[in-house]
Structures are given as structure tokens and as C-alpha cells.
Design a protein around this nucleic acid. Structure first.
Lengths: 354, 354
DNA sequence: CTGAAAGCGCTAACAA
DNA sequence: TTGTTAGCGCTTTCAG
């Protein structure tokens, strides 16, 4: 029906009275091929609109030029930015990217790994789901010598290259900032801490308190899944139990928004009565009233770092001798929700929006 | 070095003293194969951990079981939900999905189409970028008989299956709601309207006004790229030019948030002085203060509809005889930003959060 | 500098 | 029910 002209190198060869192998060489500009032939081949190729069949190439070469990415969700500024960074580098190098989402579900993560392996990807980039405890599904990837890079949500008990931010330092800085603003009953919202980043954020919080002569009050540490509704509940929990607090540092922007809503509903003044800080610098943290203090996870830089690390690994073709760990410096972003001393407001004017 | 046991059907065949073709048939449970052989093959396959090489299968069968999706950005609740819907159906059917982002950039969209074609995808699902005017890059897809489905941001001047929401009706309903709330100088933020959805939203706005005996005041229609900052600027524009207005209906949630911030900065009371409504039901519209009235684009339903339409098409193997258009009903979501008469508040209590 | 031939792993006529 | 054979489109030794 339709013009199904599946043009192949043989078509070019025929038209030029040469062999397919010569065409192949010309197309890949092999060194020992005459300039004239090369030119002719290229010309005909253009004329008949020849496109190499990447599947045949993949089969022949044993590499698909496909790379797999697994993230918890793509609908998050941080993840989508990192993905974009990887994607751009990948495309530049002639690779295509298969993006998949685990939705923080362990089963799905395992399935996805197998699906990617089935698809014969040349390498895999992963940010772990919250539910992931066992890491067996990655062992087969490593054994097969397939390049593997973890980012952000990583695990330590597995020898694999990774890119992270300094969660500890950022958490320390934000907590310190709250202390400097005069808050001294600082609550902390966190996740059941399987994953490194959450442990680190807690450590930063703890150490900052201790540096200032305070200590962690277990009653002020509330664990949840850190979604919006969890933040609401956690805030309500503190209020209803009558646990005194004058600030909250959450390991996630989502739950701090929930807390903000709940606190406002209960008539608290932010940042007068309670100071708030989140983590992630999701765009909406600039939309709330007041704007939320948070931590920017330098997603662009991370995407670039991941891509570089990954393609370096790919060059080594599985001949991996060491596992690199790259730590990037995150950027605290101070907005209205945590500033009651009138300091720094000039620097953040446009973001606090009243 | 590593256990690179590339197990193939030949390994199984050898171990069982049969031929590769028999193994192949057993694996695909061909009807005319003995139960015993089938069983044995399956057993050995499991033992040596055989995984079919999908690339070889693809080359042989001429289909990659890969489908390509192009969206403006994945970092948007609507798009990521639709993508998720497609992904789930696809995976269930043994297809993998390559997700790509055009970032509303025409060049990139064209490139991506070619990249997907190069990757030999079996079909393509697209939501157009804002910059896209020419559609030539899709013609080659159609000519090749590759299933193609547009969703949400579609074009009419090309014969292709599509899934959309009833933008017109939703815009009409929201505008009507504003009118019923007593607003009568309703501004409209829109995009330079290349894309259908924006035209339709404008039409709905216009027709609602006219139904109530008003007409469109060109001074109240402000065009921009509809991002957050654009919304700020558009609001500032109205204020500074002294154009009287008491409500804004924006074709995008992002720009209405910008407007909200700007108006609050200038001391306007929302919804008392100015009523606001956006479009998209992005999660953050529930985070603002007050919550924003908007339109839910039923992303889950759309994902399902797209998947169904797409795989129906795939079944027909390019033998496309008609172009279906599926129109879904969108859901207006009324929140605090547009309700000054105290109506309906019960129904939206939890979402308005004070 | 180019050709001939083999093969990546799989499937599907055609035979038997 | 199973085996034989050929070939998807490409790359790459090995010869010339």
C-alpha cells in the first residue's frame, strides 16, 4: 500500500555496482576506502533516503545503543531534570534512552530491571525506590558487566558507581539556619530510613542541633512517607499531642507543604510562630505563601555528572575496576517560611512574593 | 572475566539433542509440538537461565516491540500520568516505551521523530509542542504506515487518530462559574493559539460571555507563553495599564499562579477583589492560598484511552481506514480562588485549606 | 582499496 | 511432530 521502501545497503550497492560491504565501509567511513566511492555512496544514500536499520546493527555488534533509566517517578522536578541531562548527553552520543518509573514499588523495580535487560540495554541508571531493601536484582546486572550507575537514592552495600548530593551538609546548614533564626524546638519529618539520603538528612539535623548544644528530642522526629497528606498528618500529630515545637525541617518538600497548610488552618503564623524548611526545591515551594525554605538538589549538575560517569563506564566496556562516588554540593534556598529576623530578605525578595 | 553466558536457543537444542527450530517453537508454544518436548525445553531454558534476545527477534520479525512517546515535558502531572497509563498497558502487552521530551521546541520534535524512526519503533504517541506549526515530520510516519496517535495537544489539519478533552466545554463551564460568582470583567490569559486546545479554551470563554450578554474585550485577552513568570507579567500588565478587571481565567495553571502572586503583592484580595481560575489541575493548585479553581484533565482516563486507541491501531498493522477522535469530558474543580459567594464550599472543604 | 563469505539469534516456509 | 534451510540487515575477518 504505502511506500514501504525498506532501503538497505544492498540497494545502494546494486545501484552503484559494488558490494554491500563496501557500502557499509563507506557509510562508516572506514579508513581504507576511496574518497570517490565514499562520496558516491553518500550521495545515493541520500537520494534513496537510506536509514540504517539500528536493530540489525545492534544484533551484529552486540550493543543496542539503548540505555535504561529507572526513577521512582518522572513527575518531579528533580528527577525529570536529571533525566533530561542524561538524555541530552545520550542523544548527542547516538544513544536512545528508555525511561521507566518504579513508583517506589520494589516489585516494579525488579520487573523493570528484567525488562531492561530483556531489551538488551547497554547500561542502566537508577535512583532507588523507597520500598527497595534487597538489591539482588542489581547483582545480575553487575555480573553481566553492564554499566550501572546509581544517583541520589543510592545504597551503600553494593559496589556500584554513584552520584549524590551532600545531603548531610545541606541538612546541617538548613537546621543551623533555623537555629540562627531563633527556633529551638525544631521538629524533623523523615522517612523510615532505608535509603541513604534520609539517614544523611537526619544526621545533618542531629549534628547541627548538637553543635548548638541541643539534642534530638525523639518526640519531635516524625516518620512518614513524606507525601503531602503525610505532612498534614504529622503536623496534626504534633499539635494534637501537645508536643511543643517552633519549627519543622522536613526531608521532603511535599510533606512540608502539607504541614504549612495544616498549620495555617490551625491559625499558626508562618514564620512568626513556626519556621518551616523542606528539601528538594520543587517549583511549587516558590508558589506557597510564604515561600518555603528548602534545598536545591542541583539537578542539572547531577544529570551531567551522571551522564559523564555513565559514559565513562560504557567506554570501559564493563572492564570496571573501581567504583566512583561523586558528591555534589547542594544549595540551601532561604525563603520566607523560615526567616523571622528580617535577615537576608533582600536576597530573596522576588521569591517570597509578599 | 564475568560469566558472560550468552545462552541461546542453540544451547538448549544441543543439551536436548534437538534442533533450534524445535526449541523456538516450544518456547513460543507452537500448536504442533509435543507436550513432552515443550516441557523439557522449558525446563532446560530455566536451568541455564535463557532469555530470548529481543534484538534478534526484532530483526527477524520486523517489529521492535518498542513504542515511542513524545511529550512537551514529562515534568507535569498531566503528561506524566498519561505516560504512565500508556506505559502500563504497553508493558502488559510486552512492549517497551521510549519516552522523549520536545520541551516545546519544534527542532527537537523533528529530531525526536527521526530518532524514534531510526530506533524502529512500532508506533508513536505524541502531544505536540507549542512551537510546532509544520507537521511534515509526521507525514513520513503516516506514509510508512506506522501507527500514530495524538493526544491533548493535537492538530486538525492532519489525518491522525487523537484523544482530547472537551476544552471548549470546560472553558465554558469555568467562565460561566466566574460569571455566576458575580465577576463581570473577566480577563483571559492564553497562548498564541497555534494549538487547538488553546483555541478551544478561548472559544469556551467567548461563548460563555456571550451567553450571558457580555462580549470579549480585547484589552482583557492577554497572550503569553503561559509560564509562571508570564502570568506575573500579564497580571502586572493589566494593573499598570489600568485596565479594569475582576477575574482572570487562564488557559494554564502556571500562569494563574504567577497572577495570584502578583495580585497578592499588589494587595488584591483573592477571591474578594479578583477571582482566579486556571486549567490543568496541577497538584500545586491545591497548595496555594487560596486554592485555585481549575480544570482536571482526567489524565488517567486519557492515558487509558490513548493506550486503547493505539494498540487497536497496532493490531491493524498500519491498515488504517479511518481516523478516530475520542473526546473526554474534563472536570472543573472549584476551589477558593473563585468563590466569593460562599456557594459550594462544603463540597471542596478539604481542598481549600483555609 | 574492494569482494566474498560467514554469522549475530531467531523464526518460518518447506520438507519429511 | 520435528528437521532443514534460508534470511532479516548489517559488519568484519580473510583474501585478493
Amino acid at each position: 500500500m504505502s511506500k514501504k521502501e525498506k532501503t538497505t545497503i544492498h540497494d545502494i550497492a546494486q545501484q552503484l555496482g559494488i558490494t554491500a560491504s563496501t557500502v557499509s565501509r563507506a557509510l562508516n567511513n572506514h579508513p581504507r576506502i576511496s574518497a570517490k566511492t565514499k562520496e558516491l555512496v553518500l550521495k545515493v544514500a541520500k537520494e534513496i533516503n537510506y536509514k540504517p536499520n539500528s536493530i540489525a546493527v545492534a544484533l551484529r555488534n552486540g550493543k543496542s545503543r539503548l540505555i535504561g533509566i529507572i526513577v521512582p517517578t518522572v513527575n518531579r522536578d528533580f528527577f525529570s531534570s536529571v533525566v533530561r541531562g542524561i538524555e541530552e548527553t545520550a542523544n548527542k552520543l547516538g544513544y536512545k534512552v528508555i525511561i521507566t518509573q518504579s513508583h517506589d514499588n520494589y516489585e516494579r523495580e525488579v520487573q523493570t530491571i528484567h525488562a531492561l535487560l530483556d531489551a538488551r540495554v547497554d547500561g542502566i541508571v537508577v535512583s532507588l525506590g523507597k520500598g527497595t531493601q534487597k538489591l539482588d536484582h542489581f547483582k545480575s546486572v553487575i555480573q553481566k558487566g553492564i554499566p550501572l550507575v546509581f544517583f541520589d537514592r543510592v545504597a551503600n552495600n553494593i559496589p556500584v558507581c554513584q552520584v549524590v548530593i551532600d545531603d548531610y551538609l545541606a541538612a546541617y546548614q538548613v537546621t543551623e539556619h533555623l537555629i540562627e533564626q531563633g527556633y529551638n524546638r525544631i521538629a524533623h519529618f523523615n522517612s523510615p530510613m532505608n535509603i541513604n539520603i534520609f539517614k544523611e538528612r537526619f544526621r545533618g539535623y542531629k549534628d547541627a542541633l548538637e553543635s548548638y548544644g541541643m539534642s534530638v528530642d525523639p518526640a519531635l522526629v516524625v516518620e512518614s512517607n513524606l507525601q503531602l497528606e503525610d505532612g498534614r498528618q504529622s503536623a496534626r500529630h504534633l499539635i494534637e499531642k501537645g508536643i511543643p515545637f517552633d519549627a519543622i525541617f522536613s526531608a521532603s518538600d511535599y510533606s512540608i507543604v502539607g504541614a504549612l497548610q495544616e498549620l495555617k488552618k490551625h491559625g499558626y503564623n508562618i514564620p512568626g510562630d513556626v519556621g518551616l524548611a523542606g528539601f528538594g526545591n520543587e517549583p511549587f515551594t516558590a508558589f506557597t505563601d510564604p515561600g518555603l525554605t528548602t534545598v536545591d538538589q542541583v539537578s542539572i549538575a547531577m544529570g551531567q555528572a551522571v551522564a559523564k560517569l555513565f559514559f565513562d563506564l560504557l567506554d570501559k566496556e564493563g572492564r570496571i575496576t573501581e567504583t566512583q562516588k561523586i558528591v555534589l554540593r547542594a544549595k540551601p534556598v532561604f525563603r520566607g517560611s523560615s526567616q523571622r529576623l528580617g535577615i537576608n530578605t533582600a536576597a530573596i525578595s522576588s521569591e517570597t512574593a509578599n
